[in-house]
Amino acid sequence: MLGGLLPAARPGPDGESDAAPTTVGAARQRSLTTAFTTSAVSLPALIDAARPLLAPRAAVVALTFDTGHVHPGYGWMGPLKAALEASVRALAVELGSAGVRVNAISAGPLVTPAASAIPGMETLAAHWEAAAPLGWDRHDAAPVARTAVALLSDWLPATTGQVIHADGGATLPLTVG
């Protein structure tokens, strides 16, 4: 239902459709609200709940996906991930004085249950593997996990409010010439 920014179907000129426009709009609004809550609002809520456990030098890492490009079939998830990234920056500012770092990892496409719900994911992953200068294996989450470990460790004590790309370089603006 959220694979495109515009609704998939509109009533025809005769006014007939499977559902009334208000019903389709209400269902889409509920889906968007759920997706927004899950994708963007849940991180601040989780951090708020865990705040008593966040001592100085603590780190929080969120997962995002390339918001610098439009990916067919990804629809509303692009803007929602951009909202998540904005939340990461704002949380980094709010928690910085407490010594807590907040960052996000923009991972390349991986084979996961969530990814299986994205239309065209197979095509996207194949394109990604071909475009990544360092290569990309959609079946290997280890590079992303190692990036998370680095962000959670003391090895990056001055890094906060950032989106770190662990994507094989596929999102680099490459110029052919």
Rank of each mutant, 00 (worst) to 15 (best):
G3C: 06
G3W: 00
G3D: 14
A9M: 03
A9S: 11
G12W: 02
P13E: 00
G15E: 04
V24M: 10
G25A: 14
A26R: 08
A27F: 03
R28H: 10
T38G: 11
T38D: 10
S39W: 00
V41F: 02
A45Q: 14
P52G: 01
A55C: 06
A55W: 00
P56K: 07
A58R: 08
V60I: 04
V61F: 08
F65G: 12
D66E: 14
T67K: 05
G68L: 08
P72G: 14
G75H: 09
W76H: 14
M77H: 14
M77G: 07
G78M: 05
K81A: 11
L84T: 02
A90Y: 03
A92F: 09
A92G: 01
L95H: 14
G96E: 15
A98E: 15
A98P: 00
V100H: 13
V100D: 15
S106L: 03
V111G: 01
T112A: 11
T112C: 09
T112W: 06
A114D: 12
A115Q: 12
I118V: 15
I118A: 12
E122R: 08
E122S: 12
T123V: 13
A126H: 05
A130F: 00
L134S: 12
A142M: 06
A142T: 10
P143K: 09
P143W: 08
T147E: 13
L152G: 15
L156V: 10
P157C: 15
A158M: 12
V163P: 02
V163C: 10
V163N: 10
V163G: 09
A166V: 04
D167K: 04
G169D: 06
G169K: 04
T171W: 02
T171K: 08
T175K: 11
